[in-house]
Amino acid sequence: MQRKVVIIDDSAFMREFIEETLEDEGYEIVGMAADGDSGIELALEHEPDLITLDNVLPDMLGMDIARILKKEECIRSKIIMISALGQDDVIAECKANGVEDYIVKPFEEEDLIEKVANLFN
């Protein structure tokens, strides 16, 4: 069975890059959003196996989205944060909010594939 993915990122470049990379690996992209509100809606609607989440969105921070989805809505999706923000305290806070893993940009396609695969192994 194909694993379902929702991509939440304001960057069109990143949305397309993540979509193409994960589709090539057999994942099904069930929705993409460019802001936090629509992202939360999509995540609740699909409750996908995986959510890739940017940390700085036009309307809210990714770490707050993770908290809402994991701590308040209690969805079981795994969340991987993909962000240019690489401060240790930010990464720690994201993980405390329910983010399973964190990728700091820039990164290679293989890094994403490996991190995502590790989440399901």
Binding site: A12, F13, L85, G86, V90, K105
Partner: peptide
């Protein structure tokens, strides 16, 4: 046009983070 606009926005996002991360740390 779509691709190049998206690419330069992402470029800016990535390089700006280098300076900011350092200030924050």
């Amino acid at each position: 046009i779509k691709k190049s606009n998206a690419l330069v926005l992402e470029t800016d996002n990535i390089i700006t983070a280098g300076v900011m991360k350092n200030l924050a740390n």
